[in-house]
C-alpha cells in the first residue's frame, strides 16, 4: 500500500464525522427552514446527532436518555406548541426578523470564543477509563442517592414545582 501523507481515519472518527454532519445539518434546518414544522424535524435530527456523540463517548446512558427525553418528550411538546397555533402550522414564516444580523454576529462571536476555549484548554489525555459499561450506570445510581442525595431530592421538588406550573400554564379556565 502506498504511504499516505496523513494517517487514515479510524472507523470511530469516520462515524463521528457523519454524526457531526447530521447534527450541523439538523441545526441549520432549524434555523433556516421557512416552515416551523420542518424546523422541529431538524431539531429532532440534531438531537439524534447529539445522542450519537454521547454514545461514541461511551456515555450510553446519557445518549439513550437524550433520545428518550429530547426526541420523545421535548420535540413532541414543541410540535404540539406549533400545532396549537394556527398561523404557525401551515404556510411559510420568514426565518429572519429585524434582529437577524445582530444575532448572526453574536452567535459567530460566541462560536469563535468557544473554539478558542476548546483549543486552548489542555485536555487531559485519555487514560484508563474510570469504569465501563454497566458500572457507569450503577455508579451514577449510587451517586444519586449517596453523595448527591440533597440535589437529587431538590430535583424532585423542582419537578413537583414544574408539575404545578404546568397546570397553571395549560389549564383551560372555564
Amino acid at each position: 500500500m502506498p504511504e499516505l501523507p496523513f494517517p487514515l481515519p479510524t472507523v470511530q472518527q469516520v462515524i463521528f464525522s457523519m454524526i457531526a454532519v447530521l447534527t450541523v445539518l439538523g441545526a441549520l434546518v432549524v434555523v433556516l427552514a421557512p416552515n416551523l414544522f420542518h424546523s422541529a424535524l431538524g431539531l429532532v435530527a440534531a438531537f439524534f446527532g447529539a445522542a450519537g456523540v454521547y454514545i461514541i463517548a461511551e456515555a450510553e446512558f446519557i445518549g439513550v436518555s437524550q433520545v428518550l427525553i429530547y426526541v420523545g418528550a421535548i420535540s413532541t411538546l414543541i410540535t404540539f406548541a406549533i400545532m396549537l397555533t394556527r398561523g404557525m402550522m401551515f404556510g411559510a414564516t420568514s426565518p429572519r426578523n429585524r434582529q437577524w444580523g445582530t444575532a448572526a454576529i453574536i452567535t459567530s462571536l460566541t462560536f469563535l470564543v468557544l473554539v478558542g476555549i476548546v483549543s486552548s484548554v489542555p485536555w487531559p489525555a485519555v487514560g484508563e477509563p474510570i469504569s465501563q459499561g454497566h458500572e457507569i450506570i450503577a455508579g451514577l445510581g449510587r451517586a444519586f442517592v449517596n453523595e448527591y442525595v440533597v440535589p437529587f431530592l431538590l430535583l424532585a421538588m423542582l419537578l413537583l414545582v414544574a408539575l404545578a406550573g404546568a397546570i397553571v400554564l395549560a389549564r383551560d379556565y372555564k
Binding site: 446512558f61 439513550v64 433520545v67 428518550l68 426526541v71 413532541t76 459499561g133 457507569i136 450506570i137
Partner: peptide
C-alpha cells in the same frame, strides 16, 4: 447495557 431504555427510546421514533 441500556437495552431496556433503548427499547423505550425507540418508541419516540414511532411518535414522531
Amino acid at each position: 447495557n441500556v437495552a431496556v431504555l433503548y427499547l423505550v427510546a425507540l418508541g419516540s421514533l414511532g411518535i414522531m
